Simulated assay, not measured.
Amino acid sequence: MQPLLDAIATMAFPTDAQRIFHGRGGRFPGCEHWSLDAYPPVFVLTSFLPAAEEDLATIGAALQSRWAQIAPGEPLNWVFQCRHEQLRVHGRAETRLMAGAVPDPHVVTEQGARFRVHVLKGQNHGLFLDMAEGRRWVRQYVAAHQAREPRGAKVLNLFAYTCAFSVVALQAGARQVVNVDMSHGAIAIGQQNHQLNGLTTGAGFLAHDIFSTWGKITRGGPYGLVIVDPPSYQKGSFVATKDYARLMRRLPDLLAPGGHALLCLNAPELGLDFLKGQMQALAPDLALVERLANPAVFADVQAERALKVLVYKAPD
């Protein structure tokens, strides 16, 4: 646990939402089950194994000590979530408020954008912190596109979740973003995220199963940018090993000439060769441009297991 305590002892005052400690990357032996995130003004400690109360007390004391140094006079707010295997099998997690309070509504920032999060319920808190560099890339891509075409880029955001990609694309000057996700609840939060950022036009929201909505999606194209960020495994809706191919086959018809696709995969058991091999077989005319680096704090001793984000380009 010492590496976690060291990270707490040296952390800066967090303004944006961010990961503080990433034990899952395997760089800190004995701490593989711990992660610590900041969703200001709340810290979220997660364990993927059962945690002893004395360990939680030690971590709580470390947080309190550092918080008194970097935010004197401010109350410490922190939440603990246990996601050990027995709980995850049943699709739930144990979540406890350990100190302070959680704002309601709870709004965090990232690179100038505002997002609503929910850290006391569920395992997904409304903003995936490991995708920060993907959102940064989208912001830069759309801004550069606007410099070439003043009308702005047209973006398709598949598996949009709470529509964070859409928010940053519109902030950067996108002409239109079509957000598609089968979760009505996630899309509703996505609409709130647009309102939080003063974005009242340009976004469309389809709370539909992507695989039964291709007609509407295709009619809305072609798109200068297609973002594909599916779950690696979600029973009844998406299984990467069989369903990602169904998306790849569609990309050539969805993309405008010279358009780009951002393909994301967060499945430790599937490496880069899975994405690259299937793209070569199913969309050979699209050229691999780069793999985006993950935020430095998410470094993994096995890069193949970490989040994979690839950029592809359609022919001009």
Results as ranks from 00 to 15, higher is better:
Ala283Ile: 04
Leu262Met: 13
Arg250Ser: 03
Gly215Ser: 12
Pro41Trp: 06
Glu32Val: 03
Trp34Thr: 01
Leu4Met: 01
Val239Met: 09
Lys121Met: 13
Asn294Val: 01
Asp181Cys: 00
Tyr312Asn: 09
Leu270Asp: 09
Leu49Ile: 09
Asp300Glu: 15
Leu251Pro: 09
Glu304Gly: 14
Met11Phe: 01
Leu307Gly: 10
Cys31Pro: 00
Asp37Val: 01
Thr162Phe: 12
Ile217Asp: 06
Thr10Tyr: 00
Pro150Tyr: 08
Gln278Trp: 12
Pro295His: 03
Val119Lys: 06
Leu225Asn: 04
Met1Leu: 09
Arg24Glu: 09
Ala132Asn: 07
Ser47Asn: 08
Phe238Gly: 08
Asn193Phe: 07
Phe28Cys: 02
Gln280Asn: 07
Ser212Gly: 08
Ser212Phe: 06
Trp137Thr: 02
Pro41Thr: 04
Arg151Thr: 15
Tyr233Gly: 09
Val117Met: 00
Ala267Gly: 03
Ala306Glu: 13
Ala293Thr: 01
Phe115Pro: 01
Phe115Ala: 05
Phe28Leu: 00
His125Asp: 10
Leu97Trp: 02
Met182Pro: 09
Asp273Gln: 11
Gly220Pro: 08
Pro105Arg: 01
His33Ala: 12
Arg135Thr: 07
Lys242Ser: 14
Asp37Pro: 07
Phe298Asp: 01
Glu32Arg: 04
Val180Ile: 03
Thr58Pro: 07
Pro252Trp: 11
Thr213Glu: 10
His260Ile: 05
Leu262Ser: 09
Leu247Lys: 11
Thr162His: 11
Pro230Gly: 05
Asp130Tyr: 04
Pro252Gly: 07
Cys163Asp: 08
Met98Lys: 03
Phe21Arg: 02
Gly60Met: 08
Gly100Thr: 06
Leu129Arg: 01
Ala99Gln: 15
Val228Ile: 15
Tyr141Ile: 00
Ala113Ile: 06
Met182His: 11
Ala174Tyr: 07
Val107Leu: 02
Met182Ser: 11
Gln140Asn: 14
Gln64Ser: 14
Ala245Pro: 02
Leu251Tyr: 12
Leu36Gly: 06
Gln18Met: 01
Ile189Ala: 13
Pro252His: 09
Leu158Lys: 08
Leu251Gln: 03
Gly202Tyr: 07
Val289Asp: 01
Gly204Lys: 09
Ile59Glu: 12
Leu56Gln: 08
Lys276Gln: 13
Arg92Lys: 15
Arg24Met: 03
Asp285Leu: 08
Gly26Asn: 01
Val102Thr: 05
Ser65Glu: 14
Leu36Ala: 00
His106Gln: 04
Leu156Cys: 08
Asn157Gly: 11
Asp253Gln: 11
Thr201Cys: 07
Arg114Met: 14
Gln146Asn: 05
Thr213Trp: 12
Leu251Asp: 12
Ala296Gln: 10
Phe28Tyr: 11
Lys242Asp: 10
Val301Ile: 14
Gln86Ala: 13
Glu85Ala: 15
Leu199Asn: 09
Val180Cys: 04
Gly202Ile: 02
Phe238Asp: 11
Arg136Asn: 13
Val108Met: 02
Arg19Gln: 03
Leu129Met: 05
Ala62Val: 06
Ala57Glu: 15
Thr241Pro: 02
Leu97Tyr: 04
Met11Arg: 00
Gln140Ser: 12
Val119Ile: 06
Ala314Lys: 05
Leu199Ala: 00
Val167Leu: 07
Arg305Val: 06
Ala101Gln: 08
Ile210Gly: 06
His125Phe: 13
Asn197Gln: 10
Val79Gln: 13
Glu54Ile: 12
Thr58Asn: 12
His33Lys: 07
Gln195Glu: 14
Leu262Asp: 10
Val119Asp: 10
